[in-house]
Every structure is written in structure tokens, then in C-alpha cells.
Design a protein around this nucleic acid. Structure first.
Lengths: 203, 203
DNA sequence: GTCTATAAAGAGATAGAC
DNA sequence: GTCTATCTCTTTATAGAC
């Protein structure tokens, strides 16, 4: 799928420096953003010099793209997902719980998302793809549930999916800006419950 | 309230350079973010040199704070707001419409918000205050409506307010990342209608 | 694959003339 | 209030040794 996951498994083990760099970069982005961070500091944190880092990632943008690709939301993409029923809503809550458990990574991506909103961002397309995939997955699950009689049929699955993703993102911002993780999860759960009621109510 | 609005009206007219700088900075932040922009380019866009800019805003951080303070969400804060009834929901839609009408400014603030999520951001407190004021206003309106019998009493006004703000922010991100402004407004309206039904339904 | 050394450019901020 | 000139520091990236 991407550069990271496409690498043969037997090569991953020998790639310790690359992994250390990616982790250090993710932390740096969470602390200072992409534009605010420097290759020198990231390299030092990863335990090598800037020139050593450049050997693995020729430009700073290459490093950013590698960090993004290394994420890839497994929670929804990998096996175990249920893309045909309203259990997607449960999956969303699981994704949020994992985000809370790994605050640094989540903060890093939130910062990168913010920077990607800038007009000339070179990674806007990455986030567009990321969001498109997520909302499509949710929307198709809702539509599928409607077809199978588990949900009402008089609703706009795309709009509902976009709204659910929006609530996740918006509440996550509030959490990262100083709110509590508990409030984040509680409010998301409360919203999803209400959404489920709405989706299963008789039209 | 802040440095900008506190300035006496008769002085505003003589402050053309300051105004031009703030506008140029807002545009620059929307294009390249805070960390990605430079005082030199902002100054040139405002029609003066970097040293001339520094005369008005001693440091880059001073400039950022001035841009933030120059916003101040009038839509909810100024006269005309209705903080005691569920008309706050209509006000939220009006705020979104104004945001759509001034995309550059909205994008600039979305980018700055993203950068503020970074751990060591010096303006995180500004956004905390901004969000706190907005959600408090909405929450108190909902609570007030509940007391007066216009809304049910068995709900968590703070949670609902936070959720509404989250939907606005999340949908706004989707719009700015490449979605259409129409979808943003339609989906927000759809959510607010459903929320109103929920708030006024019998508990 | 990692290093030292260096280039080349750009950043924020200061000093002082006008 | 705006300018020119400069300082100082940091940045990304390259060259070439080991």
C-alpha cells in the first residue's frame, strides 16, 4: 500500500535507524509542528547526525510523508473491522480510545492536519485521501445497514459519516487544547449513542 | 477588551500601516502558517520593509497575538446575540456562513489553531479562552432554555455545547481540506436541526 | 550507513540615519 | 514612522572521508 508496509518483513528488522528516526520525527512534530521542527534536533533525538538522517530521508518533506504513511489507520483498515453494520460506530470509539492511549502520536497528527489546511500544503492530498477513505468506510457501512433493514433508509449516509468524523476531530481538538481525555471519550460515546438511536428510529 | 478594540476611535484612522500589516499577516498565516511565514514577506505584502513592520510589532509573536485579538468572534459576542434561548443554534449557523464568506481569514485561523495544538505553543491559552467563551455561551443558553421550559432538563448542557462546537470545527476542516462550502453549511444545518429536535423532545 | 565539514540561504531582531 | 545596513543564529542540503 505504501512505502512502509510494502517493505518486505525480513528487511524491517534491519531498519532500526529508520524506525528511530520516524518515532523521533513524530514526537518533534507533536511538540513543534512540521515547520517548527528541525532535522538536526530530530536526528539528535534519534541518536545520529543530521547527515545520517538525510541518508534515509533525502528531504524534510520525504520524512514527513514517511511519518504520515507509517500511520495508516489500522483500526478501520485492518482485519476485524465490520463495514456492513452499525458496529462501525463502536469501531470509531475504539479508534478514539487508541488515540487517547497514544497522545503524542495523536497530537502530532492533529498538528500536521492543521498545517495541511494551509493553502500551499504539499500534504493536503494525503489528508484528503485519509479522510475520504474513513468517511467512505463509514458511509458504506451505514448504507449497507440500511439495505439490510438494520437502519432507516431515508437518510444521507455520506452526510452522517462526515458528521461523525467531524465530531471525532472537533472533540479531539478540544481534548488536545487542554480538555480531559475522559470528557473526550464520554462525549463521543454520548454522541454515537444518540446517532445510533437516530439511525435505527422509524423514519 | 484587547489592544485593537481598546484603541480610541480617532486613532484608528491614522493606523493604516498597522491595519495593512495585520491583513497581510492573516493572509500569510492562511497560506504558510505561523512558523512557515516570514516577517520579510509579510512586510513586503503590506508595502513596507521588515524594519518598518518591527516598529509596529516588536516580535513575530506580538504580531501573531495582534492578529488573533483582531478577530474576536463578534457574531456571538456582540449585540444581537440571544443567549437565553435555543436561537443560539441559529447564531452558530450564521457564524459558519460568515466563515464561509471570508475563507482566507477562516483558513488562517484553522491553521493557527492546528499549530496551537503543538505542545509548547505560546498561543494555546488564547485558543483555550476562545473556545471556553464560545462553549460557555452556548451551554448557558441551553441551560437557560431548559429552566424556562423551552428545552428538556435531563441533559448535559456543557457536553451538548462542546459537541456542537466540535461539529462546526470538524466540518470546517473538511471544507478547508477540499470539500465544498455548500456541503459544510448543509451538513451543519442538518446537524443543528437534529440537535434542536433532541433538545426539545420530551425526556 | 554514518560521520565531519561546509556551503548557501533565510530567519528574527538591532542600530542608527532621516 | 520608515528606511538601510548589519548582526547573529538556524535552517536545509551537499561533498566527500571512513
Amino acid at each position: 500500500m505504501n512505502a512502509t508496509t510494502a517493505r518486505a518483513p525480513h528487511l524491517v528488522r534491519g531498519d532500526q535507524a529508520r524506525t528511530r528516526i520516524l518515532e523521533a520525527a513524530s514526537e518533534a512534530f507533536a511538540r513543534e509542528g512540521f515547520n517548527g521542527s528541525s532535522l538536526d534536533r530530530i536526528a539528535k533525538a534519534a541518536g545520529l547526525t543530521k547527515a545520517g538522517l538525510i541518508h534515509h530521508f533525502p528531504t524534510k518533506l520525504d520524512l514527513l510523508r514517511a511519518v504520515l504513511d507509517a500511520r495508516e489507520d489500522e483500526a478501520l483498515v485492518q482485519a476485524g473491522r465490520d463495514t456492513a453494520t452499525l458496529h462501525v460506530l463502536d469501531t470509531l470509539l475504539m479508534v478514539a480510545r487508541r488515540d487517547v492511549a497514544d497522545e503524542t502520536r495523536t497530537r502530532g497528527f492533529a498538528v500536521l492536519l492543521g498545517e495541511a489546511v494551509a493553502l500551499d500544503s504539499p500534504v493536503a492530498d494525503w489528508f484528503q485521501g485519509h479522510y475520504g477513505q474513513l468517511t467512505d468506510e463509514i458511509a458504506s457501512a451505514i448504507a449497507s445497514a440500511a439495505r439490510s433493514g438494520t437502519a432507516r433508509t431515508d437518510l444521507d449516509a455520506d452526510a452522517i459519516a462526515a458528521e461523525a468524523v467531524a465530531v471525532m476531530d472537533g472533540l479531539q481538538i478540544q481534548w488536545l487544547l487542554g480538555g480531559s481525555a475522559e470528557a473526550y471519550l464520554e462525549r463521543l460515546e454520548q454522541y454515537l449513542e444518540r446517532l445510533r438511536s437516530h439511525l435505527t428510529a422509524v423514519g
